[in-house]
Design a protein around this nucleic acid. Structure first.
Lengths: 333, 333
DNA sequence: CTGTTAGCGCATTCAG
DNA sequence: CTGAATGCGCTAACAG
């Protein structure tokens, strides 16, 4: 591998001059610049980003920590982050935290030790306090899918309360008042906020929240099935099931159909997240959008703006969910 | 940030000794080791992996280049790669090539410039020649989902010919002889190999390959729909559609149902990949497994064994697909 | 078993 | 506009 030194020899200039033409800031005469560039070309010179990092104290790497790498959401998010950052010639180091506090913490330290210039975190298990403390250290962090008021400017998040509100409002407007609710794990803020929005809509319509028609799932499909089994055993009648995400909705609909309860004729469903279901499932699930790609991209832009000082970038911290109406909610007469 | 130098001062030893206790290879007396460890603890010392990389000429980073980061497959693969590598205290730098030759090439160079110790590549557009040449350079590479005979030991791949063969054999054994085939893009080896297996099974059963019942899709769901529209317009009768992947099968089934062709009563379907469909779709698609996670993990193990010289690792280069029988193939009388 | 001495490849003062 | 010198934090001979 040719080094900057080899280039300087071949070009007949000093090491510093070669460095200058690489970092095209200071003035170099056209002639010497050309000489240097020719030499670089001739040697097939590629700067060592590691040496650059050590000397400049800037690694050009961004750590990205997510709960999982699989599933439709994180992949979409990673796609946007990677492309935005690589276009800026930064590289992304990934880690998965698996929604476990110890693993998340370990991953953060791992990324920090790697000399990342910034961290993009989509974490669920780490406490607010930990994150607030982390945000005050040397390495800047930005949070996706999480809102902590003390560091609101570093949070890129979805208005989940509004999303929950919109979903419930929608089914209420279709005449449903006997509502079941399948929640996500309430230790996750997402799940709590969606539920909060649900209750807010209920309150506005003077509809009571019925504890017997409430089930706390874990956001995965099987827990939706479990929830539905539970609900069908209750004595209380209901005409609509509101699910805190589409995957649980999928599990719940499955069980519903197995019990010969027609969807949406006898029972309506609404989900959350706009999960990319295959084309031929029926009914098509009405749901609430979750613009995770845009949020990922925004986190990358945040880093570009605040860490690498790119101007002309506008940061949007709060994203707004939207209703996506399809075929799973019927009018209730 | 405390440096190794600070630690050496506090511990009252030399710089080299501190380095030794970190890289626990050479012998250090228990007492001095303890002194050093105490000093490290007291200072909250964390070694700079960048400086380590520069000095040792080993970055402990592995570049992973995939076509896409989203979708159910690459996410699952990345999960395994990340966890296997991080357990070994290596980090993974990701890049997406988007099945485009220029982008893939650029990504490879990007990762190389980053000083990766090895590259794990799941690429489709780069030519065999390019990859063979690349494999002879300094940085070791390992290929996933691809077989190039010249560098077979660096290929971790699925026996797609066998998979295609098994799928077709299965439907033939159920009495289907009028078969339609929806292929993937034939410029991708996966697609060609699956088709090859299909033809091999046909030949064994003396069934002719019917050009009018062949459609080349692109592995995405909409092309499956297009394919089905095309097939239904043909005059030739067929009782079964073999799809080169599940996503196209999904699109095709969708169109089939729209045209009131019952699945599997009137028309059978078989897919490929074992895509994680939601629980409640019907019929459940019979398909061929694609153990992409295991292949990802194996690629990581390959790197651990061949680059970081971990012994006791057995590498399996070729994975064997298996039939997964569900409800989308009927007996044809 | 431990200390001394050179670099790794580059950025960045400071002179000139 | 350009060159010489210094150091980023660590590893790796080489002595002792």
């Amino acid at each position: 591998m040719a080094t900057i030194y080899d280039v300087s020899i071949l070009a007949g200039v000093s090491l510093a001059t070669v460095s200058r033409v690489m970092n095209k800031n200071t003035n170099v005469s056209e002639k010497t610049k050309k000489k240097v560039q020719d030499a670089m070309e001739q040697l097939g010179y590629r700067p060592s980003s590691i040496a650059q990092s050590l000397a400049s104290n800037c690694s050009n790497s961004i750590g990205v920590l997510v709960s999982q790498l699989n599933g439709p959401f994180y992949g979409a998010m990673m796609t946007e982050i990677e492309s935005a950052l690589r276009n800026a010639n930064k590289h992304v180091i990934i880690a998965a935290g698996h929604s476990d506090e110890a693993q998340e913490r370990e991953a953060v330290e791992f990324l920090l030790d790697r000399g990342c210039d910034a961290l993009i975190l989509d974490v669920e298990a780490l406490s607010d306090d930990y994150l607030i403390a982390l945000s005050q250290k040397r390495t800047p962090i930005v949070l996706i899918n999480r809102y902590i008021s003390e560091i609101a400017d570093r949070c890129i998040h979805l208005n989940n309360v509004l999303g929950g509100y919109l979903a419930t409002k929608h089914v209420l407007s279709h005449g449903h008042t006997k509502l079941a609710y399948i929640a996500g794990p309430l230790l996750k803020p997402d799940a709590r906020e969606r539920l909060e929005g649900h209750k807010k809509a209920l309150a506005e319509h003077d509809v009571n929240f019925d504890d017997t028609l409430f089930y706390e799932g874990n956001f995965f499909e099987p827990s939706g099935s479990d929830a539905m089994e539970y609900l069908l055993k209750q004595d209380t009648h209901f005409t609509c099931v509101i699910c805190a995400n589409d995957q649980m909705a999928s599990g719940a609909i499955s069980v519903s159909l197995e019990h010969n309860v027609m969807v949406p004729e006898q029972l309506s469903f609404i989900g959350y997240d706009n999960f990319p279901f295959p084309k031929y499932i029926s009914p098509k699930l009405s749901t609430v959008s979750n613009p995770i790609q845009e949020m990922g991209k925004m986190a990358a832009l945040w880093v570009l703006k605040n860490v690498y000082k790119k101007p002309d970038i506008n940061i949007v911290n709060t994203f707004t969910p939207q209703l996506i109406l399809r075929d799973s909610v019927n009018n209730n007469q």
